[in-house]
Each structure stands twice: as structure tokens, then as C-alpha cells.
Design a protein around this nucleic acid. Sequence first.
RNA 1: CGGGAAGUAGCGCAGUCCGGUAGCGUACCUGGUUUGGGACCAGGUGGUCGCAGGUUCGAAUCCUGUCUUCCCGACCA
Length: 492
Amino acid sequence: MAKELTTRAQDYSQWYNDLVIKGELADYSAVRGCMVIKPYGYALWENMRDVLDKMFKDTGHQNAYFPLFVPKSLFEAEEKNAEGFAKECAVVTHYRLIADPNNKGKLMVDPEAKLEEELIVRPTSEAIIWNTYKTWIQSYRDLPILVNQWANVVRWEMRTRLFLRTAEFLWQEGHTAHATSVEAIAETKQMLQVYADFVENWMAVPVIKGVKTANERFAGAEDTYCIEALMQDGKALQAGTSHFLGQNFAKAFDVKFSDQNNKQEYVWATSWGVSTRLIGGLVMTHSDDEGLVLPPRIAPIQVVIVPIFKGEEQKQVLDEKVGELVKSFKAAGIRVKYDNSDHARPGWKFAEYELKGVPIRIAIGARDLENQQVELARRDTKEKFSVAMEGLTQTVENLLVEIQANLFERAKNYRDEHITKADTWDEFLNILDNKTGFVLAHWDGTAETEDKIKELAKATIRCIPLDNPLENGKCILTGNASTQRVLFARAY
RNA sequence: CGGGAAGUAGCGCAGUCCGGUAGCGUACCUGGUUUGGGACCAGGUGGUCGCAGGUUCGAAUCCUGUCUUCCCGACCA
């Protein structure tokens, strides 16, 4: 029978969970806060990863891999970074289990096997990487170092949510080392642009690029740049960050180089990352009450073909005809699935692939063969229409491009309609409570005011948008002078 | 971590108050009829009732502890 989905209007959180689980992206596991990413969800991640990986390599980066564990003494070297992450670290204290003498068949931690020094399971890898870079860098000729790693990290979050905030998650983290501040800042901005390009052009999720306030900055960074997306419930999601780390880590780990004049200088650093959280953002940007809606460029299956037949004879005729179509699609680089399984009827398959967000469905039966046509259905608009078999591959290719563009356009319209200017505190609250979305408002630039607004309105400054227009105004809370509006929202 | 809810067959649930042979729907298996929007008939398979203790002649049910999940908060570089 039907897989019942909660609708967005009924319960947005439950709708999201239903989609992730029933759409077979991921599932809960026996481990607190950790999820199992299922094959369909992992295929989506692989597509995203492959595109990003190519973008990183095209901008001169190489992949490497660093250890999962960070010795506590290294972890604590950069004070702000350590302090920021300390309260959510998993810590390894022992290296052996033994049979429990008081509890048959059970194991216990061997008290004799305590580590000399605790190992921190990485919540991020700056420490272990900068400790390594120290041995890689002597001269300006060793710079820049442009390295990325694909890895898992662990952050012991209080409350977890599938993809959006899990205790363990997959991500990439770029860590670069430069001779000058100018070059490092350029790298930080370049990678922010790479993220924005990827998220907008491949995931069809519009983002606002900006810089974080001091309060929201990455622990140990001089500046944190970010891309912010807007979900369908009007809440913001930080989709990626790129940090200019200054010389903080170089100083903490004593990483110096000799410049052209043989003068010793500290190295300048950046780090940048996106994670499986992007999948959560993708789901909440495009999907609807019938299920997932995936953008064609990263969808694991772009086209599904469902045969409609009476009896084995008809099926064989269809198998043959569809075989040709599949071959032609694959030759054009289209990810296609032909579902001629006999255990489910067409109606069931239609619903199933809608739930899974497959962009295009093609139904083909005896009637279509006669008329030399197929029935095409778009997931994004739910439209169905008959098209000629002749030139079908081209038709599908064009439609995939159109769907991709439509999803972005739709999301962008929603996002743009939900950027509202507020000039008074009442207006500000009213927008957050009722219209929801981003609010552009004046802020006096102090951390105290920012904290107070967060406390009173549960909204944070998502970023100060890049190329933000200057405009004199009064802080929405204190009435103090302000030179620009900043972007507020309630956020995930 | 605070408040609330939940965990019984793959999934969704009833049974728990008031202890006495574990049930329903769906899925799955077999056979048949079907197939243009989640098919129908018939016959079957499948569960240490989250886990660990305790009370009792007897525990899904009562008691204690613990793990996991969801919702609302706090937290979220």
C-alpha cells in the first residue's frame, strides 16, 4: 500500500524525516546521533562529491588524507579553536577490552589499557594538519600548499537531525598554506565562489554569499565567509563556509618559512568545507508533499522508464524497444533506469519514483508503440504529455536542462520573496513570526546587541552580504547609528 | 542537558490501566487472475514484545536501571 507521507503543512519536521527515510536516502542507526546513508542517498553524495572534487582540482588543489585521531596536546594548541570545539568532542581514552569477570559473555574496558595521552576524534582537522604542515614548509618555494581531504568528522551534538546535524558526518575540508595574507584571502574568497557555483548550478539552490560577524565566526578564524540558503519553512541553512585563518594556526604550531630575503615569516592559512548537510538543504529546498524532488544534474537516476504491458508477449516487445532507448540515453550520458520488474504495477512505480524525486518519468505501452510516442512526466511540475519517439533522447536532454533551470528559478523566486527589510523592532518580529525568511535590518555592529537580538527574537545574523550597499540607518534594537543592513534569520 | 512522547513481525499500529498460549493492517513467500496512477482471490512464512535486572507459580503488561528515536527548548565552530 501507499507509503504515507506527512505533509509540510501538517508537520514540517516530520515531512522532512519522512522524505529522508521513505525516499531511502538514509536511516537511523543503533548509534546515537549517527545515521546510515543508504545506497540511493550515497549515490547522491557521490555525484556531489565528484563534481566538487573536479572543481577543487581545477583550482589547483590535491587530495590527501590525515588521521582520524588528534592527540590532545595538538588539539589544544590553537586556543580559540580548541575552546570552540571542546564541548563536543569524542575522546579515546583506552585501547583494549577484556572479558568482564563479573559478567559472563560481556566485555569491559581494560583499566590497564589507559592511553598515556587521550586521542580526540577529529571534529575538524586544522590541528593535525598544521602540525604536519610544519614539516612540509621551510621556504617560500614550498608554498602555497593546496590540499583537500574527504573525510568523516565527529561532533557530539546535543540534538541531531538526519543530514542536517549528525554526530558523525562526511565532508571535505580544504586546508591551504600561503606566503601572504593577500593570497590567503584570495583563496578564501575563491573557494566561497566555488561553493556558490556548485550549490547554485548543480544543486539548484540559490545562496547568499557573505561574511560572518565575530560572534558567528569559526573558532580560530580571522574571517568566516559563508553561503546561506533558505528552506521552504522560512529558516536559513548555512550551506558552506570558507575561513581566512590568518597566522593563528601557523603561530600555534610554529610554522614559518624563509621568504626571498631569507627572513622568517609565519605562514597564512585558509580552511573551507561543505558536508552531507548539503543533502538536507537540497531536500528542504525542492521537495514537495509527494516526495523528493532532485535536480537533474546530481540526481542518481535522471530518467526512469516504466513499461505498461498486458502479458509476456507485450513485455518482450517493450523490452526490446526500450532497450534501444536506454542505449541511446546512456550514449548521451543520461542516467537512466528501466524498471520492468513484474512485482509492482505501473501505478505503484509512478508513486515510488515520485517519492524518490526522479526528474523525468517515461511511461511506454502498446498504445505508445502504435503511435510512435511515449508519455513523459516531469517531477518538478507534475505535468504529463505525450512526445514523439523520434528524437526522444534530445527531447529528454533538453527537458533535463529545463527542469534544472526551473528548480533554480522556483527556489530563487521563493528566496527573493522572503528577503524583507525591517525598520522597526515590531516589524522585525512580525516578519520572523509570520512571513518568515531573511530579514535585512540595521544593526549597531556590537556583539552585545547581536546576542540580545538572538535571545529576544531567536534570530541570528546569518551574514553581512558581500558587496552589501552602504546605507545610513538606526539599529533595530538599540536605535544606534548603523551604516548597513545585515541579513538576519532563524536558522537550522 | 531540561520538558513531553515513543520503542511489540521488514514497515505502521492495537494489546499494557486490571499479569494467564502475542494480535491487526501492510509487506514477504506459493499458486492463479491482473497491469495507462499505489490490483484481486486463496493458502502460507515471519516476533527472545529495545536491552539488563527485579517482583511473581506465571511478565509485552508491575518495579528499577539503561539504550535509541521523535517533538519543544537549551546547545550548534
